[in-house]
Each structure stands twice: as structure tokens, then as C-alpha cells.
């Protein structure tokens, strides 16, 4: 049923607590691409930790309803700004192990520049606007420690690039 939806609508947006099936989403972007020969696929995953700080898992929560609206607004702006044949945005929530994908953003455009820019634009705004929160679960000397991830100022800085062009 979802596949039918894709043929009709170039935008696919989902928030899920299931492991992301990257092959499935890759096909979504690249099948029946028509004249949109340039596609860019970005995947963000849970880091596999360094030795001193052993990250065992990550929990992701979001604000159901508001998150979908915000993501749709970001996608709408990207679609207005670049001519895109397809946009796929999928974000994971729930309990994730190191190495598991968190976010999948893909764009298909007529030429690579538009596809790269639109994918980056969507990711940049997703980072600063979309109502998701990460908590990292560490294991240090046999003791579990839960740490809420802090927002980065550098993510806000990145938006200037897009705002200057507006």
C-alpha cells in the first residue's frame, strides 16, 4: 500500500520505532526516477563508541504530531526552493544500538547540485527544528549512565548558509 502512495506522491515522510530498512528506502529514491537522474542519500547512525566512553545504546523520543508537521514544513520549503523528483525522510525513535541508522534523508533532482543542496538543507533544518530528543546510555566501569544529548550551537550556525540565500 505504501508503494502505491509513493508513485502518486514524490514525498515520503515517516517516523518509526522499527529498524530502518535502508535497502527499501534506497529503492524508493532510485526506482522509476525518470528524468531525475541525480539522487543523494544521507544516513545518520548511532556512533560505535570509543573505548573510554562506552556507548551501549541510545533512546530517541519525539513530540508526536508536532514532529510530523515540522518535517513536512521543512520538506515543503525544500520542494519550493529546488526542483525535486523525490524526497524521502525517515526518522527512527525508540531504543537504538550502536551502528543502527537514526535518520535517512534522500532527494532526487535533475542535477547533482540541487540533490546535494536539498538533502543538506533538509538535514540542517531537521537538526535544529524537528522535535526529537536523544538520550545516550553509557556503561562506565560496570555502571550505567544516562545522558541527554545537548543541542550544538554549530547546528544553528549552519542555517545561516540557507538564510542568506532566502
Amino acid at each position: 500500500m505504501k508503494q502505491t502512495e509513493i508513485h502518486l506522491n514524490p514525498v515520503y515522510l515517516a517516523i518509526t520505532d522499527k529498524a530502518l530498512d535502508l535497502a527499501h528506502f534506497n529503492r524508493m529514491v532510485q526506482q522509476q526516477q525518470g528524468e531525475y537522474g541525480a539522487s543523494v542519500i544521507f544516513t545518520g547512525s548511532v556512533r560505535v563508541s570509543s573505548a573510554e566512553k562506552h556507548l551501549v545504546a541510545m533512546s530517541l523520543e519525539h513530540y508526536p504530531g508536532m514532529t510530523e508537521t515540522l518535517l513536512q514544513q521543512i520538506i515543503d520549503k525544500a520542494v519550493k526552493r529546488w526542483q525535486l523528483g523525490r524526497v524521502v525522510v525517515v526518522h527512527r525513535v525508540g531504543y537504538l544500538k550502536p551502528g543502527e541508522p537514526i535518520v535517512f534523508v534522500a532527494t532526487a533532482a535533475l542535477h547533482r547540485r540541487e540533490a546535494f543542496e536539498a538533502a543538506e538543507y533538509i538535514m540542517d533544518y531537521l537538526k535544529t527544528d524537528a522535535t526529537f530528543w536523544k538520550q545516550e546510555h553509557y556503561r562506565i566501569n560496570g555502571v550505567t549512565k544516562d545522558v541527554w544529548v545537548e543541542a550544538k550551537q554549530s547546528d544553528q550556525q549552519r542555517l545561516k548558509r540557507w538564510q542568506q540565500k532566502d
Binding site: 537514526i102 535544529t128 526529537f132 530528543w133 536523544k134 543541542a151
Partner: peptide, 25 residues
């Protein structure tokens, strides 16, 4: 479900959410 400031007026049945800066992606 729309970001706002503390001076926003409230109506019966409104849903107000408080949260820290977002950290998705």
C-alpha cells in the same frame, strides 16, 4: 504544536508543551 513565546494568550483546551532544545538527526 506551534512554537510560541511566554506572552501567548491561552484558550480553553489548548495544549502547551515545554521542552529543551531539540537533538534529533
Amino acid at each position: 504544536q506551534t512554537l510560541c513565546d511566554p506572552d501567548k494568550g491561552l484558550q480553553q483546551g489548548d495544549q502547551v508543551a515545554f521542552f529543551p532544545p531539540v537533538t534529533g538527526g
